[in-house]
């Protein structure tokens, strides 16, 4: 039947097939090459899109799970936005519930008050729970603005024999910077470099799986196991 079509009619049918996505991907690519240079063809496609749009009424709206929006926002914008409040920032933490936040805050206070009661802190406090999506690894990080010290405690997970957990700081779009390797019992006491101390509020901490003693390249070489956003306490 196609022999009965004029070239214009043939183009309109092709435009409809393209709009409906009936073509194979090879045919789609070939059609798109023509489309880029043919305004009439482009109009044919636009007409079909508008015609078929009426059928879209039959797509029944379904409210997506709430967590999807948080995931989307984190993926697009990173976990923090300085202009938003702490509470909305908490909402953006990847894989991080409010209950976990509260637990992290309580533990942070315990860490500061219990093992080192001789150090009354006066500077700003920051906390981060660096957690794997499946919670197989969770490390609590507490940063004391008065001393520049970052204290780490693993609450779940352990490096495999012959491997080490290495901690990385990521600020904005900069490449990760190594902050050192966690001890075998999953703790660490790290003095944050001066230039990172000012950026701690928007920082992301990550833990990667590295050979014994840490990465030798200056960048993570193994899998990034856990990620956490730093926020003020």
């Amino acid at each position: 039947m196609s022999e009965a079509l004029t070239p214009e009619e043939e183009n309109r049918v092709l435009a409809a097939e393209y709009t409906l996505r009936l073509m194979t991907s090879e045919e789609e690519r070939a059609f798109e090459l023509r489309l880029a240079e043919d305004r009439a063809l482009e109009r044919d496609v636009a007409d079909w899109v508008a015609h078929f749009a009426d059928l879209a009424d039959e797509y029944m709206p379904v409210v997506p799970p709430k967590a999807l929006k948080a995931r989307l926002t984190t993926d697009l914008f990173g976990a923090t936005d300085k202009s938003t409040s702490l509470w909305s920032r908490l909402g953006l933490w990847q894989g991080f519930s409010l209950a976990a936040t509260a637990a992290a805050a309580v533990m942070a206070v315990m860490l500061i008050t219990q093992p080192a009661p001789q150090v009354p802190t006066s500077g700003p406090l920051f906390v981060s729970e660096i957690a794997a999506e499946d919670d197989s690894l969770r490390v609590l990080a507490v940063y004391d603005g008065a001393t520049g010290g970052l204290r780490l405690t693993a609450t779940a997970g352990q490096a495999e024999t012959g491997r080490d957990f290495e901690l990385w700081a990521i600020v904005g779009d900069n490449p990760p910077r190594s902050l050192g390797v966690l001890t075998d019992d999953g703790t660490g006491n790290i003095l944050l470099p001066d230039d990172l101390q000012g950026a701690v509020g928007g920082m992301v901490l990550a833990i990667s799986d590295e050979p014994d003693g840490g990465s030798t390249t200056g960048a993570p070489t193994g899998a990034v196991l856990a990620v956490g956003q730093v926020t003020d306490l």
Binding site: F52, D54, L55, V62, V63
Partner: peptide, 19 residues
């Protein structure tokens, strides 16, 4: 989970000639 009123309002578009 059905649509919210706002979403229903958006879904109900112009007369459907193609139908």
């Amino acid at each position: 989970s059905g649509p919210t009123p706002e979403q229903s309002a958006i879904a109900g578009s112009e007369a459907a000639r193609i139908v």
